[in-house]
């Protein structure tokens, strides 16, 4: 019998530290599978966030850099500008990307940086024990919204893909989920597209993956998947928010000049 499915090479052969049923592991594997299938492990540099996936540098076989909280898109910008020959991706959670790192995210997008951003949205700060995140749903109880998130006081959840798709530098903004095998397949397809965009010089690509946090949601892994389907996906609709050829989409603006003389 031949092996039909196993751990991809770009994912190191180590036990992941994530809680049982945490979908980070699925998303790690998808990124690694894409790296394997494109044959780019030796020419890829990943940038880790601060949060639950802070140790991702131990899990990916490519060279890795650990960024300060929220700054991964800026660090990735530095890598890509210094070494355009490398494939560069960031792997970030919702607190990292959509709260403390909002400026870095928005400006990397508007500059059309040729990087792939993998954005794991589970609506909570997992590493610090389940505090309210920028993407926590209205009414959701967390350790810092013990009466449920009240948008009048705590503000409204950020729809990251919708926001970033308004920026000219964004080539791909897509929201997927990892609740079912078809959705997992779609997520992988989009991660591949993000890496391919980068190789084509097509600008900033973000794949937002709706994910679970059984430990901090206080649910079993199976119940968490159910909540993801019944509460999160309806609030954050899946789909392609933007998918363009950046040069074509911005032809009028690019024609206004600025090329080095």
């Amino acid at each position: 019998m031949a092996v039909k499915f196993q751990r991809p090479h770009a994912l190191c052969d180590v036990r992941l530290h994530y809680c049982a049923g945490c979908t980070h592991g699925i998303i790690h594997r998808l990124v690694a599978e894409v790296i394997d299938e494109m044959g780019i492990e030796g020419d890829t540099v990943g940038v880790c966030p601060v949060g639950c996936s802070v140790f991702a540098y131990n899990y990916f076989g490519c060279d890795m850099i650990e960024a300060p909280h929220g700054r991964a898109p800026a660090v990735a910008t530095g890598v890509k500008r210094a070494r355009p020959d490398l494939n560069v991706f960031t792997y970030q959670g919702d607190g990292d990307l959509a709260a403390i790192g909002t400026a870095e995210t928005v400006h990397a997008a508007t500059r059309g940086e040729n990087i792939a951003v993998i954005f794991v949205n589970n609506g909570t700060y997992g590493m610090t024990g389940g505090q309210m995140a920028p993407t926590t749903l209205p009414g959701q109880v967390t350790t810092t919204s013990p009466y449920g998130r009240d948008p009048r006081k705590a503000g409204y959840p950020i729809h990251v893909c919708e926001m970033l798709s308004t920026l000219d530098g964004t080539a791909l903004a897509v929201r997927t989920a990892v609740d079912t095998v078809p959705h997992i397949r779609e997520t992988k397809k989009m991660i591949r597209k993000a890496f391919e965009n980068q190789q084509k010089g097509n600008g900033f690509s973000i794949v937002e993956v709706l994910s679970t946090c059984p430990s901090n949601w206080g649910l079993t892994p199976k119940e968490s998947i159910k909540r993801l389907q019944e509460e999160c996906i309806p609030y954050y609709p899946l789909g392609v928010y933007k998918d363009v050829n950046m040069e074509e989409a911005n032809a009028d603006k690019l024609a206004m000049g600025g090329a080095a003389k």
Binding site: V47, G78, L86, E104
Partner: peptide, 26 residues
């Protein structure tokens, strides 16, 4: 060379971290 005006000092120094991490003079 590369000149990039960042959105903030915070972003600029982190770009320095990224470029420096590749061994590039930055």
């Amino acid at each position: 060379g590369v000149f990039l005006q960042a959105e903030s000092e915070v972003a600029a120094i982190n770009m320095v971290l990224g470029a420096g991490a590749t061994g590039t003079r930055v």
